[in-house]
Amino acid sequence: MAKTHVKMTVNGKEIEALVEPRTLLIHFIREELELTGPHIGCETSHCGACTLDIDGKSVKSCTMFAVQANGADIRTIEGMAEADGTLHPLQDAFREMHGLQCGFCTPGMITRAYRLLQENPNPSDEEIRMGISGNLCRCTGYQNIVAAIRLAAERMNGTQNWEAAE
């Protein structure tokens, strides 16, 4: 089968490549672009470990072909920090609130939470839980993830009145 030319912006960088049409976007990102932050957990769009931010949407990249992302603007966990290395408030908050353990779901979780907070800068706990319901975590029981997202939201809004856990 003929390879297809694709062009996209990934973490602010323009990239071009020839891909087999059946190449899944997650494999393209991880193996061609060597951005191994996003992970593969279930391969059937249930776990969200492969979540990328594509054109302002959270997308499970195990269930998308790289060719479908032609022309897209993509952000991965590797593009979440600022150019000078300053971490995104979510990255700090996940660490502070112990919102991760094995770390496997974390890139997808933070990437998803990033979009959630873009759309809803001040979510309730229930909205956070709904908002991350496409991302499975096997370690944390979500409670500290919810707390981390809330903390990040407060900081991003400059409304933090948070008493960090003792």
Binding site: S45, K57, V59, K60, L116, M130, G131, S133, G134
Partner: peptide, 9 residues
């Protein structure tokens, strides 16, 4: 239907 990511696409 499904979850937030899937509803986007």
């Amino acid at each position: 239907i499904a979850d937030p990511q899937i509803r986007y696409v």
